[in-house]
Design a protein around this nucleic acid. Structure first.
Lengths: 143, 143
DNA sequence: TCTTGAACCTCTAGTCGCTAGAGATTGTAG
DNA sequence: CTACAATCTCTAGCGACTAGAGGTTCAAGA
């Protein structure tokens, strides 16, 4: 009744089956007990833990951060400052990313505005790429 | 005089040496002539082509898009509409990304505001992760 | 001309967070 | 009991590089 197959867990938490196995492999999820035929069977704690992981992934935390958050969450008497710090660090990286992308967006919009829709040889888009000095400003790597 | 080693090219265009070799391997750059000792020697056209690639990468275009842009740029009499479309497509994906990240940022800010900086057991950060229904709204994958 | 050592060469593997597929086994409904 | 869906393990692939091993070549100074 309480025991779920990996497919049940997958549907309940909306995490794909191979992803669940992957999380086990990298140690985010504990290896669950198995049936006689070596199939995984999960209990309620696994559902909670996987939900936690999924929500954290949705919020863009990387696996290392999630590992720390999970481990912190098992120490209810400690200060939550370290968890705070992890979130703050992530927020800052999101903000940096937004700043980069905003710059990028304005560059791309500018390129499109400049485009006269004529033949390629007059195309500002190609020109800007070929000769970057035409460009208004520098920006960091986007990656 | 006009022939550059891979290191010279690297410094001139600010693209790392292994990256240049990688671009050759995936067919973004032509395989250049070699010295007797099998070292690569580049000419001015290679400098231009690699600059083009670098600028496009800085603008966040992926290799496939760059491949198309490079090939379009060699057809000066054709309409620049296809190039236009590539830029537009990219702009739209940047805009989607910004929208996602902006949502994310507000979630993370909210989490930090809610945090009372007490013990972990009262930490809203951990609670929100463990029980996502506390969360104000859904958002797409960030990846 | 010789020597040194920086720069070059190829090849493989690792990054991150999965995803896809092959080929074999197991669980379960009818 | 029989299908067949679901599960299993294992390996490889994605994108755009990056790192490192182990070997070779180039060019400047003595």
């Amino acid at each position: 009744m309480t025991d779920l197959s990996i497919g049940d867990l997958s549907r309940r938490v909306a995490v794909k089956v191979p992803t669940i196995r992957y999380y086990e492999q990298i140690g985010l999820l504990h290896a669950p007990p198995r049936t006689e035929g070596r199939q995984r069977r999960y209990g309620p704690d696994d559902v909670s833990r996987l939900s936690f992981i999924r929500h954290a992934r949705d919020l863009g935390f990387d696996v290392e951060a999630i590992r720390e958050l999970l481990s912190l969450s098992t120490q209810p008497d400690e200060s939550c400052h370290p968890a705070d710090q992890i979130v703050l660090r992530h927020l800052e990286s999101v903000e940096r990313r937004i700043a980069q992308l905003t710059l990028l967006r304005s560059e791309l919009r500018h390129m499109l505005e400049e485009c006269r829709h004529g033949p390629m040889r007059e195309c500002r888009i190609i020109q800007v790429l070929a000769d970057h000095d035409q460009c208004r400003h520098e920006h960091g790597k986007v990656s």
